[in-house]
Amino acid sequence: MAKAPFITFEGGEGAGKSTQIRRLAAHLQTLGIDAVMTREPGGSPKAERIRALLLSGAAKRFGTLAEAVLFSAARIDHIDTLIAPALARGTWVLCDRFIDSTRVYQGASGDVDPRQIAILERVVAGDIMPDLTFILDLPPEVGLARAGARAGADSASDRFEAEGLAFHETLRAAFLAIAAAEPKRCVVIDATGDEEAVETAIWSAVVERLDVPDAAPAKVAHNDDGERGRRVTT
């Protein structure tokens, strides 16, 4: 069986990644395509414990290199436990953040040497690399306002949301730089529009880049509970 597509969603705080992952998963379900939704850091029991440590800010005092190593430790378990087995059995994987967030948050914004980030990436991810990456782009002040309005969605995300505007502007520039450097993998999506417009743009790119039928997103009920690691199938 051929390896299934691995799709990652990247972008700053409040860009709507988890919402669009749920919408894409629901659309794939209507086409009879098996998919699993997951996230980083997290996605597996051990990785979720590391997530709680990282996003609470408890690891911040050890520096960004230590954070990058912890993110990598979580990624190892996530890949071994969920991502690699799903892809091997032909299940699509839709992941909220992956290698690019480490490159941006701990690299470009955290000042970890890009060579160190690249070494961690090669050792941890190996050949488990995204086939398609959506970078949901919007002005950081808009994203932060959206994130602040998410009442109780994920209080742990305050670790990065609490950083200043300049930090988030650096994030945005770094994500766009990755997209420019890797156009075969990355697609920049204007995330300032409404959810339906963003969903349509994402689906158009999926049809263009991957082997799926061109069927417009159906009007389906979208679960907004933030669940991760959930398998979506018919």
Rank of each mutant, 00 (worst) to 15 (best):
A118D: 09
V36I: 15
L144D: 11
V232Q: 05
L54N: 09
R209W: 04
G193M: 04
V212E: 11
T38S: 12
L136M: 12
I128M: 05
Y105I: 10
Q20R: 01
R185T: 05
K60Y: 05
E195S: 11
F175Q: 02
R122S: 14
G126N: 13
Q116M: 14
E199P: 00
A66F: 01
R146E: 03
A177Y: 14
T102Q: 02
A181F: 07
E227D: 13
I128V: 14
G43S: 08
A74W: 09
A26M: 03
C186D: 11
V112W: 01
A2Y: 08
P217N: 03
T81Y: 08
E40A: 05
L171A: 10
V69Q: 06
S18Y: 01
I79T: 06
R103D: 00
A197F: 05
D211Q: 08
E196T: 10
A145L: 06
G11L: 12
E10I: 03
R231S: 13
G148R: 12
I202K: 00
A25G: 07
T91Q: 15
A84V: 06
M129F: 00
I79L: 15
A151H: 14
P130I: 00
L87M: 01
D190T: 06
R209Q: 11
A66R: 06
V198E: 02
L94N: 03
V112F: 00
R23Y: 04
G148K: 08
D225A: 15
S72F: 06
P85F: 10
G110N: 06
A149R: 11
D224E: 14
D96R: 06
Y105E: 03
G107Y: 00
P5T: 03
D77K: 10
T19V: 10
G143W: 14
I189M: 02
D190V: 09
A118W: 04
